[in-house]
Design a protein around this nucleic acid. Structure first.
Lengths: 313, 313
DNA sequence: TTGTACTCATAACCCCAGCTTATGCCCTCA
DNA sequence: TGAGGGCATAAGCTGGGGTTATGAGTACAA
């Protein structure tokens, strides 16, 4: 094995090394139900199919996952670990699914939602999963855009309920704050700030070139407003057009950035990014549900709204 | 569409509604490279194959994902959204991959790691991904167990580096604290505590029956120790044998629980669980890297260690 | 213009992964 | 001892997804 691409760091083979979704679901079902046959029935396949899939997974991964016995199947120790990793994939897939579903049913859904990008990306799938649990019959359609587009769609009657992040409510709309989103300063683990314990102040933050989204983006606005309170202004080291690009640049060590904790939550938890403590800067923005003034949400819109309001009061 | 299971809430069809990993990777590659052909080359498949896969995805999801032009392909607006959801699936799959890889190479790897369950499940994959980026040739093997098992393997020379969570360092081992894990009180969004703003005190926490892991588990130990400082003791409402089971019970509203923020991070961010503020209880535990006293980590072990220490100093 | 180089789409063919049904063995329990 | 639930094996079919070969549209330079 020479240097460079070892086996396992080529993206190409990922799909061949990771079992497909159906197999992972099957594994979860086996864990839950304690029997290959029952799991097979739950997923609507035959028992031999389930048996062979699990066997194939074990061959693929090179470890034993389930203990078969004539009275059922239980996970092995490593099976438990693998299943937990698998669960994260399946959950991400479920979020993808509800999101895609909502995206597809553009027209004539019972509940048409318009949301800003960040909310559509990170929060809505979770809400829709919860909504589906409580009101399985509600068909939801989703359109994502910036705050302006959300407002337009509500005013044009093309959406029943909107979600926006930002400092104020667009004209003609009413709304309630449903959550607060914190912006956080993040750096790659190798950056000097990563070991820092003393909080950053506004002056230092304003003086340091940051990796930022272009001027006009929601995140940038909040940052500028926060620093303006101290007479400062964010200095861009690099301006990128998508949040993902910014995040990628920070992870690869290009410099510090200020991003929503929604966006970097995973990376911080997994240690790919480090959050730098900050003091004296108001890096919070409200997340709001909005509707056209006078048309308080009713029916499915009300269901979804009450669901989101129970989150982070 | 009658009541009950609508289309989209049956787990069975998930794999048919969500494109498979290869297709999602392809989409990410297209987004990054701006061309179907280039993306195809990167993944080692032919251009027509890529073209057809993307087309199949669009048919499957019912939305246009990429704008084809004779000079390349760019994502549509909804394509950007879908791609972001897809990225989360692929990242989960990468974590699965490195984990499984480490699990497979049990014997004669250059670096044999033993880790407690929680660390193996939530943190190690991220570290291994980072390690692979810096030292692509390092083959890592992983065994997961409780703190005792980790200690045994280190002392028996079956592992080079261990990771444990807990209050103290096992006998015969040395170690450093690499991170702190906070335990948090969580409830389902419908629970009365979800709207609560005043922090819980130790007395109230000790007086409330909780959903817990069985006595002897790491989490339970920390909780008992923390409450013991005030003369209290956790009262179980329900004792379950796995963290996942506890989490599931809390999500479905069975009652409050105390869990590691590593475990519930996703759920809290997505609003499936609500974190309740707590005051006056020391719900922190150290995460430590450990090794047999006298054998300070060298080589690959040192690489991994330094990597983890850069995280949450 | 015309040639070249890039894009993506279409067509015809092929293969194997994974499904199904049918069966058998093992264990447990009434 | 027979019934029933559990898993494994065998044989056969199907189709999704791959391949190569080719065409058609756009851009740019000679």
């Amino acid at each position: 094995m020479s240097s460079g691409a070892g086996p396992g760091d080529d993206a190409a083979g990922l799909a061949h090394r990771v079992p497909e979704l159906g197999a992972l679901q099957l594994l979860l079902a086996v864990a839950r139900l304690g029997s290959l046959g029952r799991a097979a029935r739950e997923l609507g396949i035959s028992q031999p199919a389930a048996s062979s899939r699990v066997r194939a997974m074990e061959r693929q991964l090179g470890v034993a996952l389930v203990d078969r016995s004539p009275r059922g199947s239980r996970l092995t120790d490593t099976g438990v670990l693998v299943t937990d990793w698998a669960r994260r994939i399946v959950e991400a897939a479920e979020a993808f699914d509800v999101g895609a579903q909502a995206l597809r049913d553009r027209r004539d859904s019972r509940l048409r939602v318009a949301a800003s990008m960040t909310i559509a990306e990170y929060l809505l799938p979770g809400w829709l999963i919860a909504l589906r649990r409580e009101r399985p019959d509600t068909a939801v359609s989703l359109r994502a855009g910036n705050s302006l587009a959300v407002a337009e769609q509500l005013l044009a009657g093309e959406a029943d309920l909107g979600f926006v992040e930002g400092l104020d409510v667009p004209n003609g709309l009413s709304g309630v704050v449903i959550a607060q989103d914190s912006l956080v300063v993040v750096v790659a683990p190798g950056h000097p700030w990563a070991r820092r314990r003393a909080p950053l102040g506004p002056a230092e933050l304003a003086a340091t070139p940051l990796i930022l989204r272009e001027r006009g983006s929601g995140t940038r606005q909040v940052l500028d407003a926060a620093l303006a309170a101290d007479g400062g202004l964010a200095r861009p080291l690099l301006e990128l057009s998508s949040t993902t690009a910014v995040k990628g640049a920070v992870v690869s060590g290009a410099g510090p950035s200020v991003l929503s904790e929604l966006v970097v939550g995973d990376e911080v938890a997994a240690g790919r990014l480090v959050q730098v403590p900050v003091e004296g800067v108001r890096l919070r923005r409200d997340l709001r549900a909005v509707w056209t003034t006078g048309h308080r949400p009713t029916g499915p819109a009300r269901d979804l709204l009450s669901l989101t309001r129970r989150v982070v009061a």
